[in-house]
């Protein structure tokens, strides 16, 4: 195996890690506020649909990305209401929402396209080589010859870090996820912080959906998310609720995914189905808590009310 193989593999890892990383960064902010948003799986799908339909109608990639983010925020307003105001079980509400989202997405897709059955494709974001940086050996082609949504995602990771640890609102949001009673007593609206968290995860999940459509595949299918929302949940745990560590965790998942593609092409010794299943298996183990729960917000999944 030569340098070319490594570069191809690593570049593919980064490409494949992009959407899950975007979703994971939003989920991370949400969980820091104390809400486990299982509904990102469905949100990603709706974001993908919104971006696809907008691209078809307008042809503008930027507008499509914005539409996906807006759709994510909109549907997560409903989820936030369920989680925070109604104080429903976060897992149940999120899971049921995911089922609802699949039904809604396929219905809307069929309505929008009439009786047409052929797979429609749209143009996608081209890779953009960043001057100078992209000419570095190995690192250049791996990180700096990617598409605009990846750069946006990395910016979002940095933004999540600055927001959580350097701003007043970030401190207040983390307090809402660690000890909501203390936050409440300090004059912080726990409700508002948690709404904010859920909406941020909605925006990022919407963007993740657009990422898949606009920078990876160029079409829409109702099964296209295929559990990547759940993988994002696993990445948050692996990343110990830290925006930087989540980047690393996402790359590991992306590498698994890319390896499966590469091996499928090169040799037949390992059954590709096994590699395909690997990220999901690791996610289940991560969610089960087998790798420890250090860094988990103390009030995660606990609805808050004063009495």
């Amino acid at each position: 195996m030569n340098t070319a193989f490594w570069v191809t593999w690593l570049a593919a890892s980064v490409r494949l890690a992009g959407p899950v990383l975007a979703a994971a960064e939003g989920e991370l902010v949400c969980e820091r506020a104390g809400v486990l948003n299982v509904g990102i799986e469905g949100t990603i799908l709706l974001g993908a649909l919104a971006s696809f339909l907008t691209a078809q109608a307008t042809g503008s990639l930027t507008l499509s990305l914005v539409a996906a983010i807006a759709a994510g925020v909109l549907v997560n307003l409903f989820l936030a209401w369920m989680y925070v105001t109604v104080r429903a079980s976060q897992v149940v509400a999120g899971l049921v929402f995911n089922v609802l989202a699949v039904g809604a997405a396929s219905a809307i897709y069929r309505l929008a396209l009439g009786g047409e059955t052929a797979q429609r494709t749209i143009p996608t974001f081209p890779p953009v080589a960043i001057p100078w940086l992209s000419s570095l050996p190995i690192i250049g082609p791996v990180f700096f010859a990617q598409t605009a949504p990846l750069y946006l995602t990395l910016l979002a990771a940095a933004g999540a870090h600055v927001f959580l640890f350097r701003t007043r609102t970030g401190l207040a949001l983390r307090a809402a996820g660690e000890n909501p009673r203390a936050a409440d007593a300090a004059g912080i609206s726990v409700e508002r912080m948690r709404y904010l968290g859920v909406l941020v995860s909605g925006a990022m999940a919407g963007m993740a959906g657009a990422y898949m459509v606009l920078a990876q595949v160029g079409f829409f299918r109702e099964g296209m998310v295929a559990g990547q929302g759940f993988i994002a949940l696993g990445i948050v745990i692996f990343g110990r609720w830290s925006p930087w560590k989540a980047v690393g965790a996402a790359l590991v998942f992306g590498a698994c995914d890319a390896l499966q593609f590469s091996l499928q092409l090169s040799s037949g010794s390992v059954p590709p189905q096994l590699l395909l299943a690997l990220p999901y298996l690791v996610t289940i183990l991560a969610i089960s808590g087998i790798f420890g729960r250090a860094g988990k917000p103390a009030a995660l999944m606990q609805p808050y009310s004063r009495d």
């Binding site: 660690e178 000890n179 203390a182 007593a185």
Partner: peptide, 9 residues
């Protein structure tokens, strides 16, 4: 009586 501090802060 019950302190209102965030223990991880």
């Amino acid at each position: 009586q019950e302190f209102l501090l965030v223990s991880r802060f």
